[in-house]
């Protein structure tokens, strides 16, 4: 795979031609290398979720080309190249934790033993082995989100798309989950595209931050986060971290002030 995601001249217009037309995205160009951890940040309504859905072929672009894992986005979806995680865990409440994690594998027709082995391994990875026969409502928000991550990783997709995955969590849980996802990222080598509203989160977690501006959504700035890996609590207290924080904050202030 030479590029994980290539977005070329992409535009997205909702309800084109009608009175409630929305120009959600315009002239988006973005190349994401395999193994990158890329964050999208920008004011509400600037099209971050829309961009993620275009990558996932959950929406079709109004113009331009989306390539995922060197294939058209549609083919990449059929080949299950990516896993998706939303802000809400979106677990199926009628399925136990283990069965939720197994769902994509069921759809892919994997054998029962393989499904169970994968689910065990994934729940181990997110530290929820003991809860595998619980139902979603018996778990806290943070635990549910871990299950959602385990489910998205269960079929070993090459790309993970995460839309504000920690947006509903408290600050402490959030920081712990950031460390966990970084861990998973370095262990699995998965390319991650991550939407967030939190500047410290974007800076701590990513190798590159894309700052977007609204109406219509465009890429305003791309900031490399060349902080050393692996990142830990010391990273958050380093001077470089503060410099990057300031850089992203100023880029954002530029687009909000428009």
């Amino acid at each position: 795979m030479s590029t994980a995601v290539a977005i070329e001249g992409v535009a997205k217009i909702f309800n084109e031609g009608s009175s409630d037309q929305v120009d959600a995205l315009q002239g988006i160009d973005l190349h994401i290398e395999p193994g990158e951890f890329l964050s999208l940040i920008g004011p509400s309504g600037c099209g971050k979720s829309t961009l993620l859905r275009l990558i996932g072929d959950l929406l079709e672009p109004s113009g331009g080309k989306v390539t995922v894992a060197d294939k058209p986005a549609h083919q990449a979806r059929l080949d299950r190249e990516y896993g998706m995680v939303f802000q809400q865990a979106t677990l199926y409440e009628w399925r136990s934790v283990a069965k939720n994690v197994q769902l994509p594998l069921e759809v892919m027709g994997r054998s029962k033993t393989e499904r169970e082995d994968r689910a065990d391994a994934m729940l181990d990875l997110v530290g929820l082995s003991e809860f595998k026969s619980h139902y979603p409502w018996q778990l806290s928000g943070g635990m549910q989100q871990r299950v959602a991550i385990a489910r998205a990783l269960s079929f070993e997709p090459s790309i993970l798309l995460m839309d504000e995955p920690f947006g509903a969590l408290d600050e402490m849980t959030r920081e712990r989950m950031q460390a966990e996802v970084l861990d998973i990222w370095s262990q699995t080598g998965t390319t991650i595209v991550f939407v967030t509203h939190s500047i410290p989160e974007a800076v701590f977690i990513s190798t590159r931050v894309v700052v977007m501006s609204p109406r219509p959504g465009r890429i305003a700035d791309v900031i490399d986060i060349d902080l050393p890996q692996p990142r830990d609590e010391d990273t958050r207290e380093s001077d470089r971290f503060y410099e990057k924080l300031t850089e992203v904050r100023e880029a954002l202030r530029g687009v909000e002030g428009q």
Binding site: R80, Y92, V107
Partner: peptide
């Protein structure tokens, strides 16, 4: 059905039949 639950099944490239049996009916 919650849109995201449908989007997830779509992301797994599920067939309409699987969507019916694994999501619509239990829902």
């Amino acid at each position: 059905i919650d849109t995201r639950q449908l989007e997830l099944m779509r992301s797994y490239a599920s067939t309409p039949r699987e969507l019916l049996l694994k999501v619509r009916v239990p829902n």
